[in-house]
Amino acid sequence: MDGARLDLVLDNRTDEVARLLAAFEAFAAGHGLPHKVTMQVMLALEELAVNIVRHAFPEGGRHRIEIGLELGADHLVCDLRDDGLAFDPFAQAPPPDLTGSTAERRVGGLGVHLVRRMMDEVAYRRDGGINHTRAVKRW
């Protein structure tokens, strides 16, 4: 199991996120990842990938999102790379409004919060015009 990799290249379309999730689910099952870990990572991957697709490319056009998943003995590293607008979701996204009932809250704003809660480490850096988002899950 240690050292297994899954590498994908997605187009910046929301339908590509389903392909990512299906590929990860098969990868996780094939390597015996615990069910809870699989579900938490799927949620994090979905949130991160959807945010890239929806917000990183306001000018439109076709762009690539590179996904690299690397399995260690007791952890999974998820790397997402894109050439969209520079944006650190972990430093720049506004904190979610967790007050009031669910019906009273505005839609959105919980994705980055959920990623932070589901994953054990999160990081962002911009290098050479490329956004690098990393999330690590341990078990």
Rank of each mutant, 00 (worst) to 15 (best):
A73G: 15
L80P: 03
L71P: 01
A18M: 13
E25V: 01
D88C: 13
G68R: 03
R125G: 04
T99F: 15
L21N: 14
Q40Y: 01
D82V: 03
A28D: 00
E25W: 00
V17S: 03
G3V: 04
V122L: 10
G111F: 02
G128Q: 08
V122W: 09
E70K: 12
D83Y: 05
L48H: 00
R19G: 03
W139Y: 14
G32Q: 14
D74V: 13
M118F: 11
A29F: 07
R134I: 00
R81D: 03
V37K: 01
G111A: 03
S101V: 13
T14S: 15
T133E: 05
L114G: 01
V17N: 04
R138Q: 15
V50G: 01
M119S: 09
L98E: 12
A28Q: 00
M1R: 12
R116A: 02
I130D: 08
M1T: 12
E66M: 05
H63G: 05
P58Y: 05
R116L: 06
D127H: 11
A103L: 14
I52P: 02
V9P: 06
V9F: 12
G129P: 07
R5F: 07
H35G: 05
G109K: 01
L10M: 08
V37T: 11
V107G: 08
A135N: 01
G3Y: 06
P34E: 15
A93I: 00
V41R: 07
L10F: 04
M42R: 15
G61W: 10
E46Q: 10
